[in-house]
Design a protein around this nucleic acid. Structure first.
Length: 580
RNA sequence: GGUCCCGUGGUGAAGUUGGAGUUCACGCCGGCCUGUCAAGCCGGAGGUCGCGGGUUCGAGUCCCGUCGGGACCGCCA
């Protein structure tokens, strides 16, 4: 199957069963070991592995030269068998070497040693970097994941529909990349942040089950888990509840995990409320403990002023970590807590006799200490961290500290998939308008049990929005959408969006809903993030063939570049001089 | 927009209190070598210490700026 006109086998293929066959291999020179005038070993490499070729040392071949070698597969002498190599039982003898191309010495070793090389050097010569086993493994894993997702979606009756890359600019959400129109100078297309509009209209159009492995683009600052362009499994379904969506998307994610050779188990469901209470974040990493513990009632009648009257007091136990955190580190942690909005951070080291070592130990009564010790299961050597504040702040600060202190690296299993459901409909209040701010997008269907609270108690309305989380990474999110114009009007009214504004901003999207929009909902998850975690990589650049740097540059092609004045003229664009 | 870290032959690192571009490993070039597989041995070449300015008798080292790379915050409905 892998043979071509130029080769009979690939470099990782040959085994004892091939002994005696004449074969032709093609590939790159991995290493050359010379032993005098008559003998040299050349390790020939392709993406499948290496094969040792025994050649006459008068043949001049160098690292990364491209060769075609024809020879006879032979057993190695018993003492020369290499157990660390899959092909180590055999070698190619009586070799005829054809140099297909020469090569300059590579700027970095084409091996795992390049893991230590500065990333910009790897990115400048990405075509060499990708020759390495690690990148080959990651890109091929990515292909398997894509393939498994496609298969899982198609088995469930989803239809792949391609949506446009040149779309209207919409004012909401992430910053967009815009593309000037030549035919209408002064007008612009946007590159899609997601196929959101189109996939919902495909439901109106009766596609029923849509999916696409879609490229999405957002002009926001880049991070270890964010690139300008990224791939999503994008899907939408008609006549469903959120459980139907979870089942369908879950099948695709679990199929992807299995394609990566894992046994993913089940996807657990927890509510947003529970996630915040137990883990302090809406994307919990459930691989480790140190969960948040409720302490408000313990300090109901406390003498300690920092805790007295606080609406929410919670704590975590950094088990056995008392020695790890000196005064300096604890001060840094306190600063971090303050940056996140806490008034302070109380830390307590549990001493050998069970008493607390802490600047505030004297304010904590014996009874409070006993209850704290019991609730947090504190043992000598533990470090206890307590925050007292508004419920949301208490949860968020401790959740972040929990991750800082105890979160294992991504490549350490197990893999814990979960759905976080019942997100709040609104998060916070817009300072300028006094209106509630939507938590997801304004087309999200409220929870049916809470619809009656929309006007009277909006901050306690749950939505039918949900996230898929893996080991503390948000893989994606989705929702059941609003398909009823009256309900949509109520939501817009709450957000302070009048009919005219709604028409102007969302008309092209909402008007089609008048023509028979079915109940529908959907989901999208990031394939780059999923593959990174499955590959054990901390950074999505490691699973992207040609990624951009944090400043949005492609170091290999030098994009972005200025363009010719003539090109700008044609588009009716004039570039301002750089700011002084 | 902000905070922090990094920048020394092709690659990775060390470089002390500011005292000659010094050192180590890999790679590269040449030589030796018939069983290596991180081959070995001998020899050699290769640097505007990212760039600019300042302090100083003297700067890889200290200060300011700038460029490039990274982590994070903001941002990502």
């Amino acid at each position: 199957m892998s043979s071509t006109t130029m080769r009979s086998h690939q470099c990782g293929e040959l085994r004892a069963e091939h002994i005696g066959q004449q074969v032709t291999l093609t590939g790159w020179v991995a290493t050359r070991r010379e032993h005098g005038e008559k003998l040299a070993f050349v390790d020939l490499r392709d993406h499948t592995g290496v094969t040792q070729c025994v050649v006459d040392n008068t043949v001049d071949v160098r690292a990364e030269w491209v060769l075609r070698v024809t020879g006879v597969v032979a057993a190695r002498p018993a003492e020369s068998v290499n157990d660390r190599l899959p092909t180590g039982a055999v070698e190619l003898q009586d070799c005829a070497v054809e140099v297909l191309n020469v090569a300059e010495p590579p700027p970095f070793p084409v091996s795992e040693r390049a893991d230590q090389v500065a990333e910009n050097t790897r990115l400048q010569h990405r075509y060499i970097d990708i020759r390495r086993e690690r990148m080959q493994r990651n890109l091929r894993l990515r292909a398997s994941v894509n393939s498994a997702i496609r298969r899982a979606m198609e088995e469930q009756g989803f239809v792949e529909v391609e949506t446009p890359m040149l779309v209207p600019s919409t004012p909401e959400g992430a910053r967009e990349f815009i593309v000037p129109s030549r035919q209408q100078p002064g007008s612009f297309y946007a590159l899609p942040q997601s196929p959101q509009l189109f996939k919902q209209l495909l439901m109106v159009a009766g596609i029923d089950r849509y999916y696409q492995i879609a490229r999405c683009l957002r002009d926001e600052d880049l991070r270890a888990d964010r690139q300008y362009e990224f791939m999503q499994l994008d899907a939408e379904m008609s006549f469903v509840t959120q459980d139907d969506v979870h089942t369908a998307i879950g099948a695709a994610v679990l199929a992807a995990a299995r394609a990566a050779g894992q046994d993913p188990g089940e996807i657990v469901k927890i509510t947003w409320q529970e996630a915040m209470n137990r883990f302090g974040v809406d994307k919990p990493d459930m691989r480790f403990g140190s969960e948040l513990v409720e302490l408000t009632d313990v300090f109901a009648a406390t003498e300690f002023k920092a805790f007295a009257g606080a609406p929410s007091i919670k704590g975590i136990n950094a088990v056995g970590q008392a020695d790890q955190y000196g005064r300096n580190k604890l001060d840094q942690m306190t600063d971090r807590a303050k940056q996140m909005g806490a008034k302070g951070l109380v830390w307590l080291r549990v001493a050998g006799d069970g008493t607390f070592e802490s600047p505030v130990a004297k304010f904590i009564s014996d009874d409070e200490r006993a209850q704290l010790t019991a609730r947090l299961a504190a043992e000598p050597g533990d470090l206890l961290l307590i925050v007292a504040d508004q419920w949301a702040t208490t949860c968020e600060v401790l959740g972040q500290l929990r991750n800082d202190i105890a979160r294992p690296p991504v490549h350490e299993g197990p893999y814990r998939y979960l759905w976080v459901i019942d997100f709040p409909m609104f998060v916070g209040v817009d300072e300028a308008t006094g209106r509630p701010k939507p938590g997801h997008h304004p087309f999200t269907q409220p929870h049916p049990d809470d619809v009656h609270l929309l006007e009277t108690d909006p901050m306690n309305v749950r939505s039918q929005a949900y996230d898929l989380v893996l080991n503390g990474w948000e893989l994606g999110s989705g929702s059941i959408r609003i398909h009823q114009p009256e309900l949509q009007a109520r939501i817009f009214a709450l957000l302070g969006i009048g009919e005219e504004e709604a028409q102007r901003k969302f008309g092209f999207f909402l008007n089609p809903f008048k023509f028979g929009a079915p109940p529908h909902g959907g989901f999208a998850f990031g394939i780059d993030r999923l593959v990174a975690i499955l590959a054990g990589e901390e950074n999505i650049r490691e699973v992207i063939a040609f990624p951009k740097t944090q400043s949005g540059a492609d170091l290999m092609t030098n994009a972005p570049t200025p363009v010719a004045a003539k090109q700008l003229d044609e588009l009716g664009i004039r570039v301002l001089p750089p700011k002084a």
